[in-house]
Design a protein around this nucleic acid. Structure first.
Lengths: 151, 151
DNA sequence: TCACAATTGACAGGTACCTGACGAGTTTGC
DNA sequence: GCAAACTCGTCAGGTACCTGTCAATTGTGA
C-alpha cells in the first residue's frame, strides 16, 4: 500500500517508530516548501532565519540557532547565505563583543513578506481535509516534542 | 521565551508556519535518536531502512525510497551503508533485471531487534506527558501530511 | 579579585539529504 | 512489432545538516 492509498489511520498505527513518521513528513514537506521558495530565490533554512528575525530583529547567531532548533554552525551558515544575498546584515552587539546582532535588510523583509503567503498557501493545501481540531492537536504535539528535545 | 519555557500551546499557535515546526521537531528528534542508535553503530537512515526491510523483506532500492519518503539516490546510499557493514545483502530480482532485492542479513535483523526497543524507549520519554489521544491525533496528522506530500 | 566555566562565531571536515543525467530494462499504446 | 514513455540503480556533484575545535569574551562563584 503506497502512501497515497488507503486511509491515513492504517498507515501509521500506535506502534510506529514516531521519529520515522516525523522524518517522512519532514522530507516531504521540505520538498514541497522548497518548490514554493525557489520562486523567491530562498532556501528553507534561509526562510526560517528570516522568519525568526521578523519576529525578533537583532537576534544573535546563537539565538537564531536556538529558535530554529539548529546548531550554532548551521545558524552561521544560514545567516551567511542570507548576508551574501544582501538579505540580512550584521552589526556589533552593543554589550557583548562575542556576538553580532543580525537584522533583515529592507530587501530581506520584503522578500519574506512575499514568500510567506506562498509557503502558508502550500501548507494549507497539504493540510486541507484536516479539521481545525486535528491541526491544533498536531501543533500542540509538535510544541511538546520540540520542548522535550530541547530539554 | 525559550523552547523549554512556557506552556506548549503558546509556543506555536494557529498561524505558525507548520513546516518550520516540523523541521524543528525533526532536528531535535534526529539528535535524540542518533544518540540512541550510536550505541548500536547505526545511523538514523540505516535504522529506517532496516525497519522497512523488517516489515517487507526483499524490497528494491526504489521501494525503500518510496516507503521512506526519500529519493532513489538517498535510498541507494542507505542500502550501500548497510551493505558495507554486512547488515543487508542484495540479490538479483527474479523478474526485473533492473532491480535488486534487498534483504537484511541475520546480523542486520538482530541489530534491528536490539536497536528498536532503545529507539522506542527514547521516543516514549519524549512523548511522556502526552495523552494517548494526543499521540493518536499526531500520528493521524502525520499520515495525512505524508500522503499529501507524496501525492 | 580572580580562576574557572560557559558562551560566541567561525574554521575544518564530516554525513544526510538532494538534482540531473545516464544506460539498461520494462511497460504502454498504437 | 515497435517506438515512446517510464522505471531502476548509480554516477557526479551539489546543499543542509552536524561535530570538534579554537580564540576571544562574558558570567559565575569563592
Amino acid at each position: 500500500m503506497s502512501a497515497a492509498e488507503g486511509s491515513a489511520s492504517d498507515k501509521w498505527g500506535d506502534d510506529v517508530v514516531i521519529s520515522f513518521a516525523v522524518r517522512h513528513v519532514w522530507l516531504g514537506m521540505r520538498a514541497a516548501i522548497e518548490d514554493e521558495l525557489g520562486e523567491f530565490g530562498l532556501t528553507v533554512p534561509q526562510f526560517a532565519t528570516l522568519m525568526m528575525l521578523d519576529g525578533t530583529p537583532g537576534l544573535s547567531v546563537a539565538e537564531v540557532a536556538r529558535l530554529c532548533g539548529s546548531t550554532r554552525q548551521s545558524a552561521t551558515e544560514m545567516v551567511a547565505g542570507l548576508e551574501a544575498h544582501g538579505l540580512v546584515e550584521r552589526s556589533p552587539h552593543p554589550t557583548d563583543r562575542r556576538a553580532h546582532q543580525v537584522h533583515a535588510t529592507q530587501a530581506g523583509r520584503e522578500l519574506y513578506q512575499k514568500a510567506r503567503p506562498a509557503v502558508r498557501s502550500r501548507e494549507e493545501q497539504l493540510e486541507s481535509g484536516l479539521s481545525p481540531e486535528a491541526r491544533r492537536a498536531a501543533r500542540e504535539w509538535m510544541a511538546v516534542l520540540a520542548a522535550a528535545c530541547g530539554a
